[in-house]
């Protein structure tokens, strides 16, 4: 099915979807759901929560597509929606009190304290456990900024557009987050 999708420009697809064209919107979903999932997963550290957020994000995008300004970057708008839903989910998630503390008992993270093997690929679960462990102690905003800048490789300007924070506030929070995370990583021994 994916092979049948012609290469359309994102602008054309968005314009078509704005008129209520579902197939055009489906192409947008197929093209971007993986990015949306990556952010949501890295933030929530939970596969099922991340899938819920992706689904909810695209439903929200569809419902508000007529408000989307074509002069704006679509991915920035999409990321913003995903990020806001992540915050909402964290707030409403009853388990949130445990999300960033349960890592303490995670066997993978405990193993990491012994050594970490960079020759071996991480599984998604291991990555989630690591991020959860590293991000413990950071505020949600700091975690999100670190994730968008250092894991998703977005520019400071894009991070600012997505989070609505000033660039200087982002730099300050980023410095703090990086310092904490790097110091935590020092305690992990790396096998070479």
């Amino acid at each position: 099915m994916q092979n049948n999708i012609p290469i359309d420009s994102l602008e054309t697809l968005v314009e078509e979807a704005q008129t209520g064209n579902i197939p055009a919107f489906e192409k947008i979903v197929r093209r971007h759901q993986a990015y949306a999932f990556a952010i949501a997963f890295r933030f929530m550290c939970d596969e099922s929560d991340a899938q819920d957020i992706v689904q909810e994000s695209f439903i929200r995008i569809w419902r508000h597509l007529h408000e989307f300004d074509l002069g704006m970057k679509f991915t920035t708008w999409m990321y913003r929606i995903v990020v806001n839903l992540c915050y909402d989910k964290i707030k409403s998630n009853k388990r949130r009190a445990n999300v960033f503390t349960r890592s303490n008992n995670n066997p993978f993270v405990e193993n990491c304290i012994g050594h970490i093997d960079l020759e071996q690929a991480f599984s998604d679960k291991e990555t989630a456990a690591l991020i959860r462990s590293l991000a413990g102690g950071l505020s949600e905003k700091q975690r999100m900024i670190f994730l968008l800048r250092d894991l998703q490789d977005l520019s400071i300007k894009e991070v600012s557009d997505i989070t609505g924070m000033s660039e200087s506030a982002i730099k300050t929070n980023l410095c703090y987050a990086r310092e904490r995370i790097r110091k935590k990583l020092e305690s992990l021994k790396v096998c070479q």
Binding site: E47, T127, R182
Partner: peptide
């Protein structure tokens, strides 16, 4: 640098939708 290498590995592990 070691810390960065671990972060790079985390970055490379792009989570996949099941």
């Amino acid at each position: 640098s070691n810390a960065e290498r671990i972060l790079t590995r985390i970055k490379e592990t792009v989570p996949r939708i099941p």
